[in-house]
Computed example of a mutant assay.
Amino acid sequence: MLILIIILLVLLALLPVIMPFFRSSNGVPLWSEQTELQELLAEKQMVYAAIKELEFDYQAGRLSLEDYEQARHSYELSAIALLKQIDGIGTQQAGGDVESRGKPRR
């Protein structure tokens, strides 16, 4: 029981030292930004692949021009929204880097 209490006290003492390694400069956990960015990039690749497949299906004559244009427009809007989200995350990360560089060190 005493060992368990000692371990807990040591972990509590080390917690303030360890936590900055798991947070970005703006206070959001770094791993959540990276995970979100990876998910958005994967989704972007899926949308791009869908556009390529749609183009192939249209060229092969499997889709009418109207269906092709509607589907392509939908995929393009999805891609635009994804790119804006990806850019927003990149701007947040770059902004945090700029802010941290601009602050004087103590």
Rank of each mutant, 00 (worst) to 15 (best):
M1R: 07
I5F: 07
I7E: 02
L9H: 00
L9N: 06
L11T: 01
L12V: 06
A13G: 08
V17G: 00
I18M: 06
I18N: 01
I18W: 12
M19A: 13
P20K: 04
P20S: 03
F22L: 15
F22T: 10
F22E: 02
N26S: 14
V28N: 05
P29V: 08
P29N: 09
P29Q: 09
L30K: 12
W31T: 11
S32Q: 15
E33M: 14
E33S: 12
E36I: 04
L37F: 12
L37M: 15
A42P: 00
K44L: 10
K44C: 00
V47C: 05
Y48Q: 14
A49P: 00
A50Q: 12
K52D: 14
F56I: 08
F56S: 11
Y58P: 01
Y58L: 02
S64G: 14
D67Q: 06
Y68H: 08
Y68V: 03
E69Q: 15
Q70A: 12
Q70K: 14
R72M: 09
H73F: 13
H73T: 14
H73R: 13
S74G: 12
E76P: 02
A79P: 01
I80W: 05
A81W: 04
A81R: 12
A81S: 15
K84L: 11
K84R: 14
K84Q: 14
G88F: 07
G90F: 01
Q92W: 01
A94Y: 05
G95H: 02
R101F: 10
R101Y: 08
